[in-house]
Amino acid sequence: MPTKTYRGREFEVDAEGFFTVPSQWSEDIAAEIAREEGIGELTDRHWQVIKFMRHEYDEKGAGPTVRVLGKTSGVPIKELYQLFPRGPAKIAAKIAGIPKPRGCI
C-alpha cells in the first residue's frame, strides 16, 4: 500500500493518491494536498465543497459526483470547475481525504 507524507505524517493512499483511511485525514493537511493538485490557496468556497465531501462520505460511505455536488453543495457546476479545474469531485475528494467517487454521471 503506497503512502504519502503531509506535514511530516504518513498516510495510506491508493495508486492515484486518494486516502484509503479517511479517518487519518485532518483539516490541517488539506492545503498541502491542494498545492500538490495545483490549487494555490483554499478559499471559503473551496472549503464549502471539501466539507460537503466529508459530510457526504460520512453519511453515505462514498463521495458525491459532480452532478450531486452541483445540486446539493450550494456551489453551482460552473463555479465548481473554476475552483477545481481538474475535476471538482475527483480533486475535492483527494483534498478531503476520501476515496475517489465512482459515479458515471
Binding site: V66, A89, I91, I105
Partner: peptide, 11 residues
C-alpha cells in the same frame, strides 16, 4: 453526453 461529462469530471 455521458462520455463528455465523464471526461470533464476527470479533468
Amino acid at each position: 453526453l455521458i462520455m463528455a461529462n465523464g471526461a470533464r469530471a476527470e479533468g
